[in-house]
């Protein structure tokens, strides 16, 4: 699958000859078998009116509009509104629905991290991820290394993310094997009592909602995702 012999007839000068890349400079010519396959399948589906080009573009944009900012809003609300936090823990789907999010057909389960218990999420069988709340998963979440090692050596994995927890904290690896999607509510950083919900949301990183990291501390790095 990874043969490169399919580039034979293409001239791949990087700089010259690609005039039409100016409007979208990140686009490259397909070179891999699977990239050609994507084009072939897409064009056939469009020709047969099964999908439309517009529909595909809209779907791409819809996913690009979903990002960890969604999850961060939910966490910030849970941090500031105890009744909301209780509802989120009791019925994730209904509680995220209150803020305009839908997680269709799946059960959304929020897990709260505390001083005593730290959840981290993995899918050892595929790459289940709460996409409506966090967007498309990062590459590492889908990687062989993360999926294999996390259930066996969670603290070594956490360390690679710069996260070290005392042995008195139970690290609970949650393998998302079935119809549930998990959202971690990280611990609220100290000294954030006066912050607004919007300011708090900026402290909620994507990784803190997967559980490979904690939320950013006050004055620490801000969420840029």
């Amino acid at each position: 699958m990874s043969s490169h012999d399919n580039t034979q007839d293409h001239h791949h000068g990087d700089a010259a000859g690609h005039d039409h890349t100016t409007f979208q400079p990140d686009l490259k010519e397909p070179t891999e078998d699977w990239e050609f396959l994507e084009i072939a399948l897409r064009e056939l589906l469009i020709e047969k009116d099964i999908l439309s080009s517009r529909e595909i573009q809209d779907e791409i944009e819809a996913w690009e509009n979903k990002s960890p900012e969604g999850g961060a809003k939910i966490v910030a609300r849970a941090w500031t509104d105890d009744a909301y936090r209780q509802r989120l823990l009791a019925d994730g789907n209904a509680a995220v629905g209150e803020l305009g999010f839908t997680v269709e057909a799946l059960k959304l389960v929020a897990l709260e991290n505390t001083d005593k218990l730290h959840h981290m999420i993995v899918c050892t069988l595929c790459s289940c991820y709460p996409r409506p709340l966090l967007g498309v998963p990062p590459l590492w979440y889908k990687s062989r290394e993360y999926r294999s090692r996390t259930v066996r050596e969670p603290r070594a994995v956490l360390k690679e993310f710069g996260t070290e927890l005392p042995v008195t904290t139970e690290v609970r690896v949650v393998d998302s094997t079935a119809d549930c999607r998990y959202l971690v509510i990280p611990r609220r950083p100290n000294g954030t009592e006066g912050l607004s919900e919007t300011a708090l949301a900026e402290l909620v990183s994507r990784d803190s909602m997967i559980g490979t990291a904690e939320a950013f501390g006050l004055g620490g790095k801000r969420n840029t995702l």
């Binding site: 969670p154 139970e170 079935a178 119809d179 549930c180």
Partner: peptide, 18 residues
């Protein structure tokens, strides 16, 4: 379990099982 540092004695793993 403690010696190799990869998990602590109280650590756990949860999975969803039918």
């Amino acid at each position: 379990s403690v010696e190799d540092g990869t998990y602590a004695p109280g650590d756990t793993v949860a999975a969803d099982i039918y």
